[in-house]
């Protein structure tokens, strides 16, 4: 079942990466990036369940917080830049 989790997460990552590269506007790229952050957090958790070691779990916490702050900052930037 862990292998199935990895496969789903990798496919989701490919989808978000496509939107990051191809998105016509900055909002689409931010959506792709936010999705990649979520994929990263899920991958960290699945890896921790696989090996039983929780060494990387604080990374998931920090990625959550930093991702939120950066999304908020880019939102202000999009509003000001208009593109």
């Amino acid at each position: 079942m862990i292998a199935a989790c990895y496969a789903l997460v990798v496919l989701a990552g490919v989808g978000f990466a496509y939107r990051l590269v191809a998105g016509p506007s900055l909002t689409d790229r931010v959506i792709g990036l936010d999705g990649l952050l979520v994929v990263g957090v899920t991958a960290i958790v699945v890896r921790a369940m696989d090996t039983g070691e929780g060494a990387f779990l604080p990374v998931a916490l920090v990625v959550t917080l930093v991702g939120f702050i950066s999304t908020a900052v880019v939102a202000r930037f999009i509003e000001g830049r208009g593109r």
Partner: peptide, 28 residues
């Protein structure tokens, strides 16, 4: 692992939506 599998499946659903929807707000 079952919860994680459902969670990963929902993330994949979100990725498919982000790829397929026509508009930035809909992808949101």
């Amino acid at each position: 692992p079952l919860l994680a599998l459902v969670g990963a499946g929902l993330t994949l659903l979100s990725a498919v939506g982000v790829v397929r929807f026509p508009d930035a707000l809909a992808r949101m």
